[in-house]
Each structure stands twice: as C-alpha cells, then as structure tokens.
Nucleic acid binder design. Structure first.
Lengths: 244, 244
DNA sequence: CGGACTGTTGATCGGTATCAATGCTCGTGG
DNA sequence: CCACGAGCATTGATACCGATCAACAGTCCG
C-alpha cells in the first residue's frame, strides 16, 4: 500500500491537526519517519519496555492496557484514529502500559527524540500534543468515575454511549448504529467486570430496548432512555479551540 | 504572610522546575500573578465552571473529584505540593472536575491566557508542563487498574503505599511514617468503596501488622509484606529527565 | 469434521453495600 | 465547667451484586 502524504492526511477534517497551516503540515511531514501497518491483535507497545517511537493513528482501533501481578488485564482506554500513542513514553521514559490493535491499523511513525524539536520549533504543534494529552486525561477521569461508582448495568450503558459518540465524531456511525471492533470480554476488561456479567447486562439492555450490541454492531435503540439510565452527560467531542 | 519570590521557591529542590535556569525563573516570576491562600475544605475550582487561572501548589494537599448524577463523589487523584492545577481547563476550556483543599494551602496563581505565551516563548517550560500532565496521567492509569481489578483490601493497601511514596518524595515522611490529611471517607471515595468497608479493611491491615492509619498518621509496619499483598510496584517517583 | 473463540444461561459463593446502633473527639455555647 | 451536637470511626446483621464454576450453543476456519 502506498504511503499517505501529510498534505492529504485523511484525519485533517476530524482532529488533531485540524486547521493546520501549510507551513505546519510541511513541518510535520519532515518528521514523519514512515508508516506502520499492523494486524489485528498485535501488540504495538509492551508494558515495561522503552520504545523510540510515537505514533498517530491513521486508521483502525486499539486499546491501552495494564496487567496486575496476578495476570488480570485492565483496559485503560480505547485508541481511535487521530489519537496519539506513546507521548507518555516519549516524555517520561518507560512504558507503563501496552497498546494492542483491535483491528488492522495504519499509523504514522515519529521519533521520540524529535519531540523536543517540536516543542522548540513549533509551539503550536506542541500545544496540539498537550491538548490531545489533556483530552485523554479527561476521558480517563470519566472512566474512573464510571468504574468507581456505578453498577454494572450503568457502566456498560455508559461505555457504549461513550464509544458511540467517539465513533460518530469520526464519521463512523450511520444513524444510531456503528461498528465496534470489540468482544464482550474487551468490554469486561475495560469496566472491571467479568465477560459473563457483561453478557447478562447486554442482554438486559437489549431486552429493555435501550442498547443493542450484536455481531460487532452497536445500535442505540433509545438513546434518551439510555442516557437517563446511565447518567451520561454527552461531552459533544470538544472541538479544538486554540488559544492562539 | 509575605509573598514568596520565585527565586526562593521552596519546591525547587523537589519537582517541576527542578533544574531551572536563572533565565527560566525570571520568566516564571513574570507570569506569577499572585499567591492564593485557602482554608482546608474549601473548593478552589468547581466542576462545570470555567476558571481563568491555573495554580501551582506551594504547600498543602487537595483532591480532584467528580460527582455522579445521583450525587456520589469520586476522588480522581490527590494533589500535592509541586502539582499543577487547572491545565486541563486552561487547554480544553471548561472544568469537568472540582478541586478541593484537604488542608490549608498556598498556591501560585497564573493566568490561563499566558499558557500560550509560555509555549511560544519558553519551550522548556511548556515541556515541563506536559511532563507534569503525563505524570498525572500515569497515576490515573495506576488508579484505574487498582479500582478496576483489585479486592478492597488490596485497593486500600495500594493507595496507602502510593500516598506514602508521594509524601516521602516531598520530604514529608519520617522513617516509615507520614501524615495523611485524610479521613477514611476520602479513601473510600477514591477507591469506590464505602467508608464502612474501608474501616474494616484498615483494621484488618493493622491487625495483620502491615499498615496502620490512625489519627491522620500512616505507618508502614511491614512494607515488604504490604507490597507483596497488594502487588505494588513502587514507581520510585520518577525524576524529571528532560530530553533537551 | 473438529477445534478455537465467543457468547449464553444456570447454580452457587463471596465481597461489599446497606442499614443501624454505639462510641469517640472536638469545638461551641450555655 | 459541663452539655450538646457534629463529624468520624467501629461493629454487627442482613441483602444483593457480581464473581466463579460449569455446561452448552453458535460461528468461523483450517
């Protein structure tokens, strides 16, 4: 497959480098080291190692995860197109989580040591990176609230609504439905539940005609009711407003 | 109380601006808008509002929190001296969490609109800010792992070890003991448990001679055993290593 | 056809929540 | 100085959510 030129970056209309100036684009292009293609289920970055690269997701889904000493997996966050992977590592040194592909992915590759150059030479890009990091932290905050306080049914509903909105913001939804490349086990690992219980909660949500998730397709049957049940406050996927 | 000059910042020897050059210090001083003193239990920043300031904690403890629709409180993170408050807000616009003081606090006040200036004029400070944000995200990751996967006893032990290490890194520990300005209810709200259950777990930890927390004083009676029980992997409070 | 992975359903067990009562400390006002 | 109430911690009894264990069905793929 041929490499995509930054000038034609398919993400432009959605996210990170949204209203980039031509000058900025050239600058980014100069730092792009290549393109990485990985298969579904492969792990890009391993907990405990130190990677020399960071990536921007061009297409495909992934998740960040950590494992406990007794081997259980916690999914921290889902990674979608436009997201930046590896900033923590680039800045702090060592990975403390893994990143695993859920689907085949294409990623832009940058080098860790260039991060400093970016901060020095192109503050607006540095700002964009920090913006991304803040957005991710905000998602983590929401997740923690959900995992800490809610009952299983609410957690599942909340996650489904959240993922639907993220997919929709990327143009991946058709009406009230979208594709989620997840198994019920992934959902369980993200919420701190067992796959068994997730199964029960999903059938319950379907029986109540709120949310249906079958064969990799998520459908919001009654969004209003689902929001009411879960207490979801749809953060309408904040657009970047540079201070500038 | 008289205002502290940046040149004599008591935090220098610990954190954020660790090896700042004189030039940097002058730069920071130019941005310092004042000093804020707040009482214990007052809320600095309110969820849902938009604040024009960000703060660096000079002294005192606080916590970040969110509330569910049904009124339950989740503590996301504890805030200690050297931490930056309000970066998310400054960058994303609106607060989605509150910050509440646990003790009397002194804070350095900066203005939100100056953040962009910092990125433009002093990349190494911008980098420091992003470094802080990454560190915080890493703590959130750990918390999520703990809240999601562990049993109550482990969660409590984990949090106690974590807070002890953070306090120690700030020179607030004497031997194997340190002061924690928390109630058991705070611990419960941070871990997604009830105060009743936290009480039981703490007495259990004390009876097993692992960890004791009484009258605001935390003592590690048997650190090795506590680590083994909880699976704590002491991240030895990473020092900032600038890429530079 | 057979195995691997995923999802479903049932039975049982355990960890925490919930509800409730009591004790303790401390600050306040009579 | 004592009485009182507020906030915090402890302890017990009970209920329930979700984990665990287990069996089985559907799908995909070699």
């Amino acid at each position: 497959m041929e490499r995509i030129a930054c000038t034609n970056c398919p993400l432009r209309k959605f996210s990170l480098f949204r209203e980039s100036l031509k000058e900025e684009i050239d600058f980014i292009a100069a730092f792009k080291r290549g393109e990485l293609h990985v298969d579904a289920n492969s792990t890009l970055l391993h907990e405990g190692t130190s990677a020399p690269h960071l990536y921007t997701v061009l297409s495909g889904w992934a998740y960040r995860s950590k494992t406990t000493v007794d081997g259980r997996l916690q999914i921290l966050n889902f990674v979608l197109p436009g997201d930046l992977i590896g900033l923590q590592t680039a800045i702090l040194g060592e990975m403390d989580h893994s990143v695993t592909a859920l689907t085949p992915m294409r990623l832009c590759v940058f080098e860790r040591k260039d991060v400093w150059e970016i901060f020095k030479l192109h503050p607006s890009l540095a700002f964009s990176m920090t913006w991304q990091a803040s957005k991710e932290e905000r998602i983590l905050d929401q997740t923690l609230l959900s995992v800490g306080q809610q009952t299983g049914l609410k957690k599942v509903a909340l996650l489904m609504l959240h993922l639907f909105d993220r997919a929709k913001a990327l143009g991946q939804a058709k009406g009230e439905a979208c594709a989620l490349p997840l198994t019920q086990t992934h959902i369980a690992q993200a919420l701190g539940l067992t796959n068994v219980h997730v199964s029960r909660m999903l059938t319950l949500l379907a029986r109540r005609k709120l949310i249906e998730f079958r064969n990799g397709t998520l459908t919001l049957l009654d969004r209003a009711a689902a929001e009411a049940l879960s207490g979801y406050s749809g953060s309408p996927e904040a657009e970047r407003k540079p201070i500038l």
